[in-house]
Nucleic acid binder design. Sequence first.
DNA 1: TGCCAGGCCGAAA
DNA 2: TTTCGGCATGGC
Length: 270
Amino acid sequence: MDFSLGSSDVFSLVNTFECGQCFRWNACGEGYVGITGDKIAKIYEKNGEVRINSNCGSDAFWREYFDCDRNYDEIKSFLPKDSFTTAAIEFGRGMRILRQEPWEALCSFLISQCNNIPRIKSIIECLCRMYGEKRSIDGAELYSFPTYEKVAGLSENDLVPLRAGYRVPYIINAAKAVAAGTVDFDSLRKMPLAQARKAIMRLDGVGPKVADCFLLFGLSKTDAFPVDTWMKKANKYYDGKLSAEQFGQYAGFAQQYIFYYIRSFLGKTA
DNA sequence: TGCCAGGCCGAAA
DNA sequence: TTTCGGCATGGC
């Protein structure tokens, strides 16, 4: 089925998919192709609007996934007008904060630690090809992200082909915790941010950075924010060690910075 | 070849 | 509480 997701003025495919918040959407022809759960889609721009062609019969799922019904312009109007925030907004223009599947987000950001994005994508792709299920749309074939039940039943030896090094036991332990109910996504979602962060950080390999990325992208806690990581990038930018273009590659952080401001200034979750 | 990557852990200070 | 080396691997 083919649906419109709204104006491309408020939905930039490049900024949304290339900012580092997700790892399974790839440029394909004039758009992007991606998969979440058992839903596979091609997304593209046409006549000033973003359209999606997927194996899902309703647009409701994707509107939720792409956070289409949140007015980001209204949120931005609350923000301070200093150059730093202005730059952050500009770099993240049209970017949607995805509401990703929690297990996929947790596992992906465990893999992301001390890694570069091409390699993160490569490791995740290998994991999906080995233990996910094949889906296809319009000539494109992708493999679904393996369920936590599936991964919980694997040994470290099973994941050797990923070449993920010390992250492998983190992945398996996390899958086992979710499968056993020790980590419960619905409960975490309902918790205040600080409590949820503390809870997820009990997992091996989950520090403040992985926790905040999981909470923001996996549980849609929009006030989660990896402050230290952002400030490291921001300081490099101000010191002239990072060009505007390089800084712009961190649009994902920019958007998180915006939500951080919202929490600080309004004292509530956006 | 060497530095660095959207970190985290555990020991030592 | 903070600091720092080690970790497993590959992109650039």
